[in-house]
Design a binder for these strands. Structure first.
Lengths: 346, 346
DNA sequence: AAATTAAACTATAACGTTATAGTAATTTAA
DNA sequence: TTAAATTACTATAACGTTATAGTTTAATTT
């Protein structure tokens, strides 16, 4: 019922001008010491807090960061948000979150809404549809408006801005090498279609690891999944594909999946076929999420350190916002991956 | 580089007053038709968009909703956020998300930050610490400021506001009955300490279901977990506790866990003890999350319909914001749960 | 032809701040 | 003793809007 008190009201109440009140509360040397303490005491009593919207308008800064991610129910993105939120709060920024739901159109609308004065900068992971379309006009327009953007994870080399990614090639190599060191020679790769940048890169890493270990590449051992919506039905299709390859390629002794859903699907198919994990087939996934931790056997994974990615993205953004990197060229920060070894690869 | 154009600039450029431009863009009948179309065309050309911060200041409305949840990496909360975000966007609202990380202090700070002009209303799920302390002054102060609050899931009867919850007692009863109908008689309950409202209620539901089925309550079959941070270590303790009970109470034939982490822990312990699921012991969890879906065996769960909860919370909030429920007493909306049957209970 | 009304615009104030410039009273310096 | 400097304030404009209350000029009425 009691609305927040304003400078105006304090001024009226104590018979000073608004300027005096404003300055007194900022402890300005221009104001007499008695007046200051009187005003400060009054403000404290009435729990005065400056109105952030007014400040935003005045300063043309909202101290708010917008984040657009393709989906929420995803351990990796959740972790990234935690990282962003923590660092942002520490630096006095708020975080607005929008979901693109993997849709290009929603991504465009979300950006438009946020850019209309609500946020100082954006952190984005591009939707699958955007990557497929290769249409980045909305990103470019925002950058043109002098609103800094940081891309993470799902990026594009056709967008010029700061980026934070993991070394997907290196991560995939680590994963593949992990299996090879275990003595696996015939390694099935479950990956995405090439337009998903991370899938593409992880595929490259897998191929490079094989080459470096003098294992001949068998393209039949690569399953490229076309999944846009991650529905139950599509999951079923993935399992079907894996099953088919397992039936035709009997010597498979390792599986590398580019995310934990695919890895979990692989586990399920293997168990259904009574194939022992990790004795007969070793499995490794990407992303250290809850599924990997609670699956049976628990999954060895490539940990992407999502929280760190979030933190670094936020750090890079705030640097741009503070003009600390004004004339510096755009940077791409690479976060190291690490293997979390669990039961699925003994 | 090109900053967004303002009414002032348009006015100057076309030699009209700011008022005229403003009205022309609102298609006001006060403005001549030629002028209007000229101004509208110009605005469109320069992609004029009203500055939301200025509008917020003017209207004393931000069209932004604040959401404070205890943690992010949690299927249920993620789903709730999806529900909130979808509905909010549909109604022209933005969503700011803050994490309390189960800490009372962070919850207080988050609310303070958001309340300073950033948001029109709040949707909150209370942190465990807050529930333990039973200190709700921050919530009350916010409500006193005429900022509507909707609580969901983790609520308290000591706070007077609109609430959206599931019927935890009923859900727990459904779960327990599901096991009883399966012929289970000695059902282990893995729950939280009583200060967590949902844990408490689910415990009650369990006890009621037993009573209604004339099964005597054995308090040794109730494990109350004290977990504040959900660390790996605490998880280990949970498994230890379950293991101990399984060793002493040999006739256990069912387990009801009040969340999916506890359920997954139960699965793990059972499998380690070579107990067949569901043949020897049936397991049912709460919350239909990814763990349940991808665990082996997949878990039967009580689905809380998080997205629906989010939507209803958002709907209730916007109702208050629009003063549609001005004089109505606070309401508590109860969302029905449903059992999702999977392998763990045949 | 004077009075009324309608049409098409503009000026002003307000939302809550703060930075800049300005003013009055007092103190200090020459 | 008068000019200069200091102290302690106040007024104003601005951030970008919009609603309210004006102000012209032209058209209509009587």
């Amino acid at each position: 019922m009691k609305k927040r008190i304003t400078l105006k009201q304090i001024a009226k109440e104590l018979n000073y001008s608004i300027s005096t009140v404003s300055k007194a509360l900022k402890d300005s040397p221009e104001i007499g010491i008695d007046t200051k303490s009187k005003i400060q005491a009054f403000a404290k009593l009435y729990n005065y807090k400056p109105n952030n919207v007014a400040l935003s308008l005045k300063n043309r800064k909202t101290r708010t960061i917008g984040v657009i991610i393709p989906e929420m129910v995803h351990y990796f993105f959740a972790k990234v948000i935690i990282g962003i939120e923590k660092f942002a709060k520490k630096m006095g920024y708020n975080v607005i979150i929008s979901l693109s739901n993997e849709s290009f159109e929603k991504e465009v609308i979300n950006i438009e809404t946020l850019v209309d004065g609500q946020i100082d900068g954006l952190i984005i992971s591009l939707s699958k549809e955007t990557l497929l379309k290769q249409d980045f006009h909305h990103i470019h327009e925002t950058i043109d408006l002098d609103i800094p953007i940081i891309l993470f994870d799902r990026i594009s080399s056709n967008v010029y801005c700061d980026k934070v990614i993991i070394d997907d090639i290196e991560g995939a190599k680590k994963a593949t090498n992990h299996l090879i060191k275990n003595g696996r020679k015939s390694i099935l790769l479950i990956t995405t279609e090439d337009y998903v940048s991370v899938g593409n890169l992880r595929t490259t890493g897998y191929i490079q690891a094989l080459k470096e270990n003098n294992i001949e590449l068998d393209t039949d051992l690569i399953i490229k999944v076309e999944d846009k919506k991650s529905t139950e039905e599509e999951l079923h299709n993935i399992e079907e594909s894996i099953n088919k390859v397992l039936k035709t390629k009997l010597n498979i002794d390792g599986i590398f999946a580019v995310n934990e859903i695919y890895a979990a699907a692989a586990l399920k198919v293997l168990k259904k076929n009574n194939i022992k994990i990790p004795e007969e087939v070793g499995v490794i996934g990407f992303t250290d999420g809850v599924i990997s931790r609670y699956s049976d056997p628990s999954l060895t994974t490539v940990d992407q350190h999502g929280e760190k990615i979030g933190k670094e993205a936020c750090k890079a953004l705030i640097k741009r916002l503070n003009n600390e990197s004004k004339n510096l060229p755009y940077q791409t920060k690479i976060i190291e991956t690490s293997i979390t070894s669990r039961e699925s690869t003994k």
